[in-house]
């Protein structure tokens, strides 16, 4: 991660204390995680104690301190999805990928997250794969969906190999 990029983000938002969360959001958006160096750089430039930056970075759910996998799976656990069977869907994904929510598979292919409500309750249970919604999910559909991503990934990997 280039610190000059971080500096630019800080410059854009300013160094007033109230700019801290907007800055962290921008860094998260840009680099998909908050690295140790980035947080140290923010603390130093903004003249805030590192613990304060770290505390904010760990308090809010949007921030991640580790890089995420290539594909983001978000399982909606909103109440509407819950009563329609979302926990079963989540269980199946966990069983299939051997990861818990907020974790990434060893091959860095998938990151699993849970979200509270996506406002698309009519379609519940919902999972979002890389921003694409999949409604009316069932345990039996999970398998196919994940397989389709793995397959897709397999193809692109082959292609990458050919290029090299």
């Amino acid at each position: 991660m280039e610190l000059s990029g971080i500096q630019k983000i800080i410059e854009k938002n300013g160094t007033h204390r109230s700019a801290l969360i907007p800055i962290l959001l921008d860094i998260q958006d840009e680099y998909h995680f908050l690295s140790r160096d980035a947080l140290a750089c923010v603390a130093q430039t903004m003249d805030i104690a590192l613990v304060d930056v770290y505390r904010a970075a760990t308090f809010y759910k949007y921030f991640s301190l580790v890089p995420k996998g290539e594909h983001l799976i978000q399982v909606c656990l909103g109440t509407a999805c819950h009563v329609r069977g979302a926990p079963g869907v989540l269980n199946e994904i966990q069983r299939k990928l051997h990861i818990k929510p907020r974790e990434t598979t060893e091959d860095k292919l998938f990151t699993l997250e849970t979200v509270n409500c996506l406002g698309a309750c009519a379609m519940g249970p919902i999972i979002v794969m890389d921003e694409e919604y999949h409604g009316q999910m069932t345990v039996s559909k999970v398998d196919k969906l994940i397989e389709s991503f793995k397959k897709h990934e397999g193809i692109t990997k082959d292609e990458q190999d050919k290029k090299h």
């Binding site: 007033h16 204390r17 109230s18 700019a19 801290l20 969360i21 962290l24 959001l25 304060d52 904010a56 308090f59 809010y60 759910k61 949007y62 921030f63 509270n116």
Partner: peptide
């Protein structure tokens, strides 16, 4: 930035203040 408790007014203001 993703915290349910920020819907509480004093928490929300604290969040605007960068905390």
């Amino acid at each position: 930035a993703g915290a349910f408790v920020c819907g509480e007014e004093s928490a929300l203001m604290s969040s605007i203040e960068g905390k």
